[in-house]
């Protein structure tokens, strides 16, 4: 019975807040709709379903429902979200780095400018690795090889224009070569790319840190560097910066609210998400899934996005994947 009383207390509190409302006071939603702009099973879907279980398990909301709208790197999902969630204070969409690139490459009519940043939640650092048998021993070796002849260095990683590809192009650019000429071999899904990297078929492999950890431990692969800032705690290998090439990039995921929210509604969503992100249940889930907590609240997240978008657009433009 106590749970009901507590729920009633929350509702009462919310009601009071609404009565006393002046715009700065948050209006926290009690029912959430989470849109995962991808098929069930992927990273965005898993984020949505993890949020669902933590939000309801911690009784931060009464209900949370997940909807999947798959397609075209999330650009179909965001278009639908903008249409269906205008001014809806209980609607959230999962998004991430991949969508920034997909929007640019697909010339999507609806961009992240149309939605309301609520919070960045998780992220994963990128890593460069080589096969144990590779003659390349250090970041400097790789940079020199890239600078000598960019087309002779083949990169194995995920889909064209995705975070791996962007990492490769940024590296080539920082090494003094034309990032647009990087010989990037795109693979669908991690498995195929990993086989190419393990068998030393490509010069260098690029992907999320967790994908490679086991193989480095079993001495099949060697770290060249990780795209985290120097001094980041808990990294399994050295940073690229420590190797002499300052490249920082993370494959982040976050949540957005619908267009046209009032300040109070925005604050309300932010409050619920923040409570979730600070809960122990959330931390446990992240640990189980190997995700890094990279929480950023709405304003900081918006500023981060702006910077990220400009950076990604520059790289993709140079790759010829975005045209004016």
């Amino acid at each position: 019975m106590s749970t009901i009383t507590r729920r009633e207390a929350v509702a009462l509190g919310a009601g009071l807040a609404a009565v006393l409302a002046h715009p700065a006071i948050a209006q926290a939603p009690t029912e959430l709709k989470l849109l995962a702009p991808a098929a069930p099973g992927g990273g965005w879907d898993q984020t949505a379903r993890t949020m669902q279980s933590v939000l309801t398990g911690e009784r931060l909301v009464r209900s949370a429902q997940v909807t999947n709208v798959a397609g075209a790197g999330g650009t179909i999902g965001i278009a639908q979200f903008v249409n269906s969630s205008r001014g809806d204070p209980g609607a959230l969409m999962i998004s991430g780095f991949v969508m920034v690139g997909a929007i640019l490459m697909n010339k999507a009519p609806v961009t992240l400018d149309a939605v309301t940043p609520v919070a960045r939640l998780t992220g994963e650092w990128q890593a460069l690795v080589v096969s144990a048998a590779s003659p390349i021993k250090s970041v400097a070796d790789l940079a020199a090889a890239v600078k000598a002849d960019v087309s002779r260095v083949s990169w194995g990683g995920g889909s064209a224009g995705g975070v791996d590809h962007i990492t490769a192009a940024m590296f080539a650019g920082l090494a003094g070569a034309d990032g647009g000429k990087v010989n990037y071999i795109a693979h669908s899904g991690g498995g195929e790319a990993m086989a190419a990297i393990l068998s030393n078929r490509v010069t260098v492999g690029v992907g999320g840190v967790s994908e490679f950890e086991q193989h480095v431990k079993s001495r099949r692969l060697r770290w060249l560097g990780i795209t985290a800032p120097e001094g980041t705690a808990g990294l399994p290998g050295p940073t690229l910066t420590a190797g002499g090439l300052k490249l920082e990039l993370q494959n982040w995921r976050g949540v957005f609210g619908g267009p046209g929210l009032s300040d109070a509604q925005k604050a309300g969503l932010g409050e619920v998400v923040e409570k979730m992100a600070k809960s122990k249940a959330w931390a446990d889930q992240l640990a189980a899934k190997g995700w890094q907590d990279t929480y950023l609240a709405a304003d900081a997240f918006a500023a981060f996005l702006k910077e990220e978008n400009a950076r990604v657009e520059g790289v993709l433009r140079n790759l010829g994947l975005v045209r004016a």
Partner: peptide, 17 residues
């Protein structure tokens, strides 16, 4: 066939060689 070939001309190569 004509549509497929025409679409082929619309595709532009991008990065790298």
């Amino acid at each position: 066939a004509a549509v497929v070939v025409w679409q082929g001309f619309q595709v532009r190569a991008s990065f790298g060689s």
